[in-house]
Design a binder for these strands. Structure first.
Length: 816
DNA sequence: CACTCGGCGTCAC
DNA sequence: CGCCGAGTG
């Protein structure tokens, strides 16, 4: 939900710009809304379980549109329940089911239009749907964290502008945010952080506020005070009041104190402490960093002195390998198992992949046909999308980069990496000799390249390198790259640097593509006047309309316009010219000759049973103080005049017996020593963190829940609407079983609820406890408890059956 | 009067 | 999200 009222308040600096204005840039795209909207197209199919990928087409269309205008999208998806706000939520699920039933009824009566309406209300966006997009190479990262966060990280690093619908990207530090992508008018609404200073309260605009002279800190404080995803506002405080009071009282402490003194509004106890946590979320949220391929903090932070609960709020740490697999869409973010392919028949068509110069081989349908059982094991899940890049012999066309650029290989996951995106982007920018639209310091650039090139895989098989932005680079591309500092700097970085000469085909393709763009991308070349074109423009989004020239098997997804390609079993051909659709100009001369990348099916994702212990620095030493993050921006408020000297998230009066620090899974029996930690540490920590994570994230951010009803601080939760990973269900860990992990659980309410807070709004806020067997019950977080002893806990504790050990670390409620 | 808050339609084709 | 109307200080 972002920050209510923020967008209207920023109206005066919103500028509607044509997409072409961003030509040549790579833009991070939070494509969640795309999926959400696309559901409208195929609600019936989705509701009735009929295979469809219309939503993929929808997203594809938008990708094409962006490319058409020279914008290279770097698309990320939410790893959590995509409509995550609802995520685990029984009530909604029940309603959906109701609608589904009604829809079915209506449909059976022939009332299809009404049926559709019901279906519309019964469908939800799932990670599995996003996965279909990933299959089509539309999405790159299936993030353990929300796209907004990853985008914001990228943006905070001044790497990208971001296209989203979420207003709080600005709070995360993005310098440039694009909203309201209008695919008809081909415009976006741009908001730049740098314009904030010019926002003045305007009498004619009731929503306006003045942000003149505000620092990031103040702006963030205003956002949080007015209510954000992590913390509901003090009832009655909206953006304007937050803004006005902050201006007057300078710090959130001052504002809160004043609100209390005024006595008109009741300040929830511990609000300030929660405020600080929310701030931490905005500042240090753990996100997946495509550059380093692991979870990192949004902005670096020294965790010393944090306690577990604090860390829990900023997110769970995940072993890099796991994080990456999640990010690449290989794992179901809910179950951490292989993601279900809800439409196995849908495969990226050659016509789609036409845009992927290095892509999967298009034309060996014969070979591949039938090789991929629909039900499939892991190979089916991953085979099509993951490729192990083998070092390959140098291509005929040699170039300097082949010798100079170390490239990682072997652990490729197959999707285009950020490095590639950025690399390409930079080249394009250089070529344009236009200062990056995104302010980037030389330092950042160079640093960035070290990371990106050295640490990223350059898979041969999948590549999005297309588009006008690329084509513009032309041959100078090569020159740029030769001269680039990245070449030298990348040497010697990390483990991932591969032996010289192992330049993978993608790299080569990269270079080759400088010459071949036109042919590859004919469909996407932009007519924009800003681009020099030396070939007839063939681009048009409409071209994307699938060709029906080929027979489609009757039982197949009708949307599927190419069912016969199986990238898995068909190594890419040497030349890909044939990919082009009949009638396309470039096919005859497609000079895109490259050696066939070796494409192997990756092994099934193996999550090490003995998970690597949390990285140093991510291991939390339980501290009980929150107040010593002296290096943090947060502290610029000055001394904390809150009640507690070293404020914990809890105020003294509700100091829970089972605070995280005291409920460490492995601590009750005195298992604090390192040995036990070794055994349980990672897992238990995960559970604990997950608990905090859930507590922090699993609530609907509307103040409809306990937050609102109760005046007890313990019921004020950090929350975010777009829950990404929403852990729920049961955890089993060695001997210990957990009903629900807990965080800050007041002793008194440490019981299963019968549902006394059974107002609708209250129910909405409850967490669905996934029962593996079927039944579900709703618990509030206050009702969550950790069970040390399964037997003692009785029947209420049900370990997760059939859950492989390595997956017991986290169990998420399965979606749907 | 100003503001907050909730409900509802919108999206898509 | 945006709009609008109800409730409130």
């Amino acid at each position: 939900m972002g920050i209510q009222g923020l967008l209207p308040a920023l109206k005066s600096i919103q500028a509607t710009k044509p997409l072409s204005e961003f030509s040549g840039q790579t833009i991070a795209v939070d494509a969640y809304v795309w999926l959400h909207r696309a559901v409208f197209n195929c609600a019936t199919e989705l509701a009735t379980g009929k295979p469809t990928h219309r939503y993929v087409n929808y997203a594809m269309e938008r990708v094409r549109l962006l490319r058409h205008h020279g914008v290279e999208p770097y698309i990320v998806f939410d790893g959590g329940p995509l409509p995550a706000k609802k995520g685990t939520e029984v009530e909604r699920k029940r309603k959906r089911d109701e609608h589904l039933a009604r829809g079915n009824l209506l449909a059976s009566q022939g009332n299809h239009s009404q049926a559709r309406e019901c279906y519309l209300k019964s469908v939800d966006v799932t990670p599995q749907m996003a996965y279909q997009l990933i299959k089509a190479r539309l999405g790159y990262f299936f993030l353990p964290t929300a796209p907004a966060h990853i985008c914001s990280r990228l943006c905070a690093q001044s790497l990208f502008t971001v296209l989203t619908e979420d207003s709080d990207l600005l709070v995360f530090g993005c310098k440039n945010v694009l909203l309201k992508f209008d695919s008809v008018a081909c415009t976006v609404v741009s908001i730049s952080r740098s314009d904030f200073g010019s926002i003045t309260a305007n009498a004619s605009d009731p929503n306006s506020v003045s942000l003149v002279g505000w620092s990031d800190v103040q702006f963030r404080a205003m956002a949080i005070l007015s209510g954000c995803d992590y913390l509901p506002s003090i009832p009655g405080i909206g953006l304007k009041t937050a803004c006005a009071m902050l201006r007057k009282w300078k710090t959130p402490q001052g504002v809160v104190r004043q609100i209390g003194l005024d006595g008109k509004k009741r300040v929830p106890k511990g609000y300030l402490a929660h405020f600080k946590l929310a701030e931490k979320c905005f500042l240090h949220q753990r996100v997946y960093d495509p550059l380093s391929e692991k979870l990192v903090y949004l902005t670096d932070v020294d965790l010393d002195g944090w306690d577990d609960s604090a860390e829990a709020y900023i997110g769970n740490d995940l072993e890099p390998g796991l994080a990456k697999k999640l990010a690449m869409g290989d794992l179901d973010p809910m179950t951490l198992g292989p993601i279900e392919d809800i439409n196995p028949n849908f495969r990226p068509s050659p016509r789609i992949l036409r845009e992927l110069p290095n892509g999967l081989s298009p034309k060996n349908k014969g070979k591949s046909k039938g090789k991929k059982p629909a039900t499939g094991g892991i190979l089916n899940f991953f085979g099509a999308y993951n490729f192990i890049l083998r070092p390959k012999s140098p291509l005929p066309q040699k170039n300097i980069l082949q010798q100079k650029l170390p490239v990682t290989a072997g652990k490729a996951s197959g999707k285009r990496t950020l490095a590639e995106v950025l690399d390409q982007d930079l080249v394009a920018k250089r070529k344009r000799k236009k200062p990056s639209s995104v302010p980037t310091t030389p330092n950042e650039t160079s640093k960035f390249f070290v990371t990106s090139i050295a640490s990223n895989v350059r898979p041969a098989s999948i590549d999005f390198r297309i588009g006008p932005s690329s084509s513009r680079t032309g041959k100078e591309n090569i020159g740029c790259r030769q001269a680039g500092e990245e070449v030298e700097e990348s040497v010697g970085d990390a483990d991932s640097v591969v032996a010289q000469g192992r330049v993978d085909s993608e790299m080569q393709d990269d270079l080759r593509s400088a010459d071949n763009f036109v042919e590859q991308e004919d469909g996407y070349l932009s007519p924009s006047r800003s681009m020099s074109r030396d070939i007839e423009d063939l681009s048009s989004p409409l071209r994307f309309i699938p060709s029906r020239s080929r027979p489609i098997s009757p039982q197949a997804d009708p949307d599927d316009f190419d069912l016969e390609v199986d990238p898995i079993s068909s190594p890419p051909p040497i030349a890909r010219a044939q990919i082009l659709r009949p009638g396309q100009l470039s096919s005859p001369n497609q000079p895109h000759v490259r050696g066939p990348p070796k494409v192997l099916v990756e092994r099934s994702p193996v999550i090490s049973a003995k998970t690597a212990p949390p990285k140093h620095g991510h291991v939390i030493d339980l501290g009980d103080s929150f107040g010593d993050e002296s290096s943090s921006e947060i502290d610029c408020y000055g001394s904390d005049d809150d009640q507690t000297p070293s404020p914990s998230p809890l105020t003294p009066e509700e100091e829970p017996v089972q605070d995280v620090t005291s409920t460490r899974v492995n601590s009750p029996e005195g298992l604090e020593d390192s040995e036990e930690r070794e055994l349980l540490g990672v897992s238990s920590r995960t559970v604990i963190v997950a608990a905090g994570w859930r507590k922090a994230w699993a609530f609907d951010s509307r103040q409809s829940g306990p937050v609102r009803q109760s005046r007890n601080v313990s019921e004020i939760f950090l929350q975010r609407r777009e829950t990404n990973v929403t852990p729920t269900g049961r955890y089993r860990l060695s001997q210990a079983a957990y009903t629900q992990p807990l965080l800050h659980t007041p002793l008194a309410s440490n019981k299963v609820s019968g549902g006394d807070k059974s107002s609708t709004s209250s129910r909405r806020s409850r967490v669905a406890v996934g029962n593996p067997v079927g039944g579900r019950k709703q618990l509030t977080f206050d009702e969550i408890s950790v069970v040390d002893n399964v037997e003692a806990a009785g029947s209420d504790v049900k370990p997760v059956p059939d859950m492989p050990e390595h997956l017991t670390r986290l169990r998420f409620e399965r979606f749907r």
